[in-house]
Design a protein around this nucleic acid. Structure first.
Lengths: 199, 199
DNA sequence: CGCGCAAAGTTGACAGCGTAAAGTTTAACT
DNA sequence: AGTTAAACTTTACGCTGTCAACTTTGCGCG
């Protein structure tokens, strides 16, 4: 399948990517508990010490997996907001994509936010990463002359907290498909974002 | 200090509690990474297999530590809301206590929410646990005839997400004391909780 | 009163983990 | 063709959780 890197292929031919994909599949199958350096190596068909030549230990491999996962995460958000034009619906769709990513890839979400998101954000890529997508969706709701970060942090905190609590079962066993009613009700708080406070 | 359990003291005299407290101190010193069954045993002065007689392995010890931590967490929330009577300020104080607990005991917070909060909630204790405190603080803002859970979930999600993102450094390195301005601005979203949607 | 028995704690072993050092293969480049 | 460095393997070490077997302790019951 994916072989776009003909740089060096002494023995294996594009290990590194094979290790990352092994890690991703381990993550899907057994959650974050199941992720281990040695199992990634075994699944890629190399010895347990081979990854050391491509990553800086387990933290390095985990970071690389997180970077890959962050791209998937970004694609989720972009895919969900794509079908909407109204700013409010767009913001709501962003949150739905956030939650759905958490449901589909719970282990990956923990990897991404386990090391601090800053490790994956590449400022040079412009609006191609998840935080820039959030930023763009929040922009229409920023009151004139106010700190833009406030709204972003409000939205991010709300959906991030909801997603983590939801997938860890705090609101009851989560069905794989998001029930529209309750989700929309909770996210109704977003309708107040950026508006004047109630009297 | 704490010796309220003279049940059995064959050799050690209240191991179990000693193991829990060892785990708590390990958590404070080295975060969740530093918590291990063998280190707890060593710190309590017993062999590495001793904990098996008191807990069901590491998961069992972790759960017990989480229960203890949950009591501290509850005390934080109660302490912070105690000094306020206005419902809005009470709700804000609750959130401040939540965040401050996360700052003071980051490892403990991860233990508590790592296994699902439901493991620690004891319904019989009435309003003495953290969720009941949250419930009580949300009660004044529930619109007549509406599902009370919605507001609770909104508040919980917002402060939970904010706390986790804050302590993991997503908003920049967190100072140990919460800066009032930004915190109040973000929590300003709470002022819209339970009010009619904006036109 | 003393005996037994179960609870509490110790010791030793095992598999799995991450990591480091040393050795071997392989490919590329002069 | 020979050298050199990267890629990979092998071996080993310390740490982890868990299990089984053994020793000690002290309570309760005949």
């Amino acid at each position: 399948m994916t072989k776009p890197a003909p740089k060096t292929k002494h023995h294996h031919g594009n290990l590194r990517q094979a290790l990352i994909e092994a890690g991703l599949s381990l993550l899907e199958e057994g959650g974050i508990e199941a992720l281990s350096l040695r199992k990634c190596a075994a699944r890629a068909g190399v010895s347990h010490a081979a990854p050391a030549h491509h990553f800086d230990g387990l933290p390095g491999l985990t970071k690389a997996i997180g970077e890959e996962g962050f791209r998937v995460f970004t694609a989720y958000l972009q895919g969900y907001i794509a079908e909407h034009t109204d700013p409010r619906e767009k913001l709501r769709a962003l949150c739905r994509g956030y939650l759905q990513f958490g449901l589909d890839h719970a282990g990956l979400l923990k990897v991404i936010f386990g090391a601090g998101l800053a490790a994956y954000v590449d400022d040079k890529r412009g609006d191609a990463d998840a935080y820039q997508v959030l930023r763009a969706c929040c922009a229409p709701f920023i009151p004139a002359g106010e700190n833009s970060q406030i709204v972003e942090i409000q939205v991010w905190s709300l959906i991030h907290g909801f997603t983590l609590l939801y997938i860890s079962g705090e609101f009851g066993a989560p069905p794989p498909a998001i029930p529209d009613g309750p989700f929309d009700q909770v996210m109704g708080l977003l309708d107040r974002v950026g508006t004047a406070p109630a009297p």
